[in-house]
């Protein structure tokens, strides 16, 4: 350790060498190992269709995960985002059907985002103002948002969604027929995920807010005494997570072509697990966009393809749980060196 104090002749550290030492490398390795194993057991897995299916499954999870990443990096946790998402989707859909059934998709998204943002800011305000742990606050608001939704806005499952939403879900960015004759397509919604990735990456890595998020996740009292405005940071991360939850909700509605008020809530852990599998510590202060996306891909591969390996569905949860534990152990070992 003391060698650190001496100037050493720096060996040229290639990108790859540096990457191998990062937690994301573990996630990537797990993805590769999984693909190889499933590929051997069931060669049909290695196809374009798997890629497009995984991508499609990753769209909403990915958007949610980016919001969760920011909250985790700032040392908090958010379990209300699914409730925010379904609230935004359902309330926007009802509103559109009632007042402007022909509303374009973009307008609906803006309304959904606005609702998500407001709910996220409420989370942030409660966490900062009352110094209550964010887990407690967001458990509370999860009940609040989904309860409010069902009690006051509606509990009916809406199948005939507004045209704008329907169109956004069915429009393909790329469409093709594989040599095997299977039709594959990539939804236009991929662009939304890419945009969210770019914006989140930019905030985390190019702005002072990004550093402030990690600083607050490291230690709130230290961040305060170094001049960071901690309340702004907390409001921001929860607001941003709410915004992305609203966006994810609209995406979910478009892709599934329905608005069901009982959807999504209950699947928070899946998203949080993805972020943690991507190398973010649950205790805060770490996590990257790249890792998070790899974590999402890993989780989606696991949940959608274990069946191909002949794992009975009752056992799938066991396998996923074991892999999460394995990865966490690997992160913890790495953390020490």
């Amino acid at each position: 350790m003391s060698a650190l104090t001496q100037t050493r002749v720096a060996a040229p550290v290639t990108f790859w060498k540096a990457f191998v030492r990062r937690p994301e490398f573990i996630t990537l390795s797990l993805i590769v190992i999984f693909c190889v194993v499933v590929g051997i057991i069931s060669p049909s897995f290695l196809s374009i269709k798997t890629v497009t299916d995984t991508l499609r499954a990753s769209l909403t999870t990915g958007i949610f995960a980016l919001g969760v990443l920011l909250v985790l990096a700032a040392g908090g946790i958010d379990v209300s985002f699914t409730a925010i998402a379904i609230f935004s989707l359902y309330a926007t859909t009802r509103l559109t059907l009632a007042v402007y059934p022909d509303a374009p998709y973009l307008l609906m998204v803006v309304v959904g985002l606005g609702m998500g943002l407001l709910m996220g800011l409420l989370n942030g305000y409660l966490v900062y103002r009352f110094k209550v742990p964010s887990l407690i606050v967001t458990i509370g608001t999860q009940y609040l948002f989904s309860g409010f939704l069902k009690a006051f806005i509606g509990s009916r499952h809406i199948m005939d969604i507004p045209k704008g939403l329907d169109l956004a879900g069915t429009t393909a960015l790329i469409q093709a027929t594989t040599s095997g004759g299977a039709r594959v397509s990539v939804s236009i919604q991929v662009l939304v995920l890419i945009l969210a990735i770019v914006v989140t990456w930019f905030i985390l890595n190019r702005t002072l807010m990004g550093r402030a998020v990690y600083a607050v996740g490291g230690s709130i009292p230290i961040a305060e005494r170094l001049g960071f405005n901690v309340s702004t940071v907390i409001l921001f991360v929860f607001g941003y997570a709410g915004l992305l939850a609203g966006l994810g909700g609209m995406l979910h509605g478009a892709l599934n072509r329905q608005a069901n008020p009982s959807d999504l809530v209950g699947s928070e852990l899946n998203v949080i697990a993805a972020v943690v599998l991507g190398g973010a510590r649950i205790t805060g202060g770490t996590g990257t966009v790249l890792g998070t996306m790899l974590g999402v891909i890993l989780i989606e591969l696991l949940t959608n393809n274990l069946i191909l390996m002949g794992v009975p569905s009752t056992w799938q949860k066991v396998v996923i749980g074991a892999i999460i534990l394995l990865a966490s152990a690997a992160f913890a070992r790495r953390g020490k060196t």
Binding site: Y214, A215, G217, G218, S219, I222, L226, G284, G285, T286
Partner: peptide
Amino acid sequence: DLSLFGNL
């Protein structure tokens, strides 16, 4: 107490 961020 140094007030450093261990995670950074």
